[in-house]
């Protein structure tokens, strides 16, 4: 898994590539923990993400909760596989997913 961050003032773009599962989720969680301070607009780019497991969903949920308090969070670029996972798990109701 690869994480690329682009910050513009209080706007942060996080692009996640590869697989977000039990082994890689802690890495993303750490990134969020370190860089969400003072961010009001968080965009998570999943254009090159292949798979997300429940551990990955938990990290997204945690980030969503944090961002609910200090601004907003958008997920974009999710492919069909990811969309199905989001839908089946009901995460479409919780997360702000662009194109859903």
């Amino acid at each position: 898994m690869d994480i690329k961050k682009t910050q513009d003032g209080s706007k942060l773009l996080v692009a996640v590539e590869g697989r977000l599962d039990t082994t890689t989720a802690p890495q993303l969680e750490k990134e969020f923990k370190e860089s969400l301070d003072g961010i009001t607009d968080l965009t998570v780019d999943f254009q090159n993400l292949e798979y997300i497991s429940s551990a990955g969903l938990r990290v997204l949920l945690s980030a969503q909760k944090t961002m609910n308090k200090q601004g907003g969070m958008v997920i974009k670029g999710a492919n069909d596989v990811l969309m199905e996972i989001f839908e089946v798990t009901g995460f479409v109701d919780i997360l702000n997913i662009e194109g859903a």
Binding site: L57, E87, V88, T89, G90, F91, D93
Partner: peptide, 13 residues
């Protein structure tokens, strides 16, 4: 079919 979110994700849903 389309599911609800998991339990304990967000209050009041």
């Amino acid at each position: 079919y389309r599911h609800s979110p998991a339990v304990a994700t967000m209050e009041g849903i």
